[in-house]
Amino acid sequence: MSTLVPASTPSKGNPLVRFLNMNTSGHTSGRNLPLWRQLLLQIVCILILCSVMFPIMYIVTLSFSSKTTRPSSLELFPKEISLVAYQQVLDHPTGNPVTFTELLRNSITLSVGVGLVALLIAVTAAYAFSRFNFKMREVLMVLVFIPLLMPAIGLATPLYLLLNNFRIVDCGKDITAFMPLFACDEGVRGKLIFNLRDSLLGVGIAITAGALPFAIWNLKGYLDTIPKELEEAAAIDGADANQTFWKIILPLAAPQLAVTFFLGFIGHWQEFVTSWLFLSQPKDYTLAMTLYNMTGQYASSIPWNRFAAMAVIVALPVAFVYIALQKQIVGGLTTGGVKG
C-alpha cells in the first residue's frame, strides 16, 4: 500500500514540480473530455483564478496609482502606470527620520545574518545527531526540540529582559561603563550610549535563539537521507570523522544548506515579533515593521498608493526567492510538513 503513495516520501520527486509539469496522468481513460464538462470546468477554474488574482491585482493597481486620496471605487486594472508611489516610498518611506536604504539594510542584515549564523552553528550539531550513536543522543535531541514548541514571543520575552542588561553608559568625566560588568558610580545616572536589547544585534541574537533549533532539525532530517555507505566507503578510503564531514557530508549537504538558509531568509525577512518588541529607534526599523506602521491606527496620514507600493516591495524578495528556488523550497516545506 505504501508504495502506491510515495507523496509521503520526499525522494520521489518534488511536489511543486509535479504540480506544475503534470500533463500525463488523470482520472479518465484516453478519451476526450466532453465539451460541456470542459466548459464547466473552465468556468470554475476562471472563477478560482479571479479570486486568487483579486488582492494581487488590487494592490498592484493601487501601487501604480498616482492618487494620494484613498480609493473611492474598486479598480483591479491599472488605469495609469505611475511610479510616484514607489518613488515616494524610496525617498521617504515613513514619517520617521529613516531612509529606505537604512530600512532595507536592516532587513537584509537581520535576515541574511541570522540565516548564516544559525546555519554555521547548526550544521555540526545536525551531523552529530544524524550520524553518531552516543549515550546522551536522545536526551539532547529532545532538548533541541523543546524550544520549537515555544512560540517566538515565548523566547522573546526573557531575552528582552536579559539583553536589556547589556548596556554601555557614558557616566560623564570620560568614564564609560559596560553593564552589567561595570556600572557607573552609585547615584550617577549617566547617558545611555548603547542598549543591546534596543539594537539590531540584540534582535539578531533573539531570532537566532529560535532559528537554531529549527536549523538543526531541518538539517538533521536531510543528513539522515545521505546513505550511510558513503561514509563507510570514506572510512575505508582512509578518511577520519572530520575528513568525512568536511569532504563528503558537507559538499553533499550544500543544496540543503542553501534551502535551509533561504527558508530562514524568507522567515526572518518578515520577522516582526522580536523586532517590534525590542527596537525603539526608527533608524533600526525593518521593512516589515514599516509596513505594519503603514496600516491601521498609525497610518491615517499615509496614502494607500504608498502603502501598496511598500507591500509590493516587501513581497518581491520573498516572491523572487520562492520562484528562483521553488523546487527545493516547496519540496522542503512539504517534506517538513509531512514529517510534522
Partner: peptide
C-alpha cells in the same frame, strides 16, 4: 488533474501565487 483540461499549466502557475506572498503582506 482532469485529463484534457485546457490551460492547466497556466492555472497551476497562477494558483500558487498566494504561497509566494509573505503572510504579513
Amino acid at each position: 488533474n482532469t485529463e484534457g483540461l485546457w490551460g492547466k499549466r497556466i492555472y497551476r502557475a497562477l494558483y500558487i501565487l498566494p504561497v509566494v506572498v509573505p503572510p504579513i503582506v
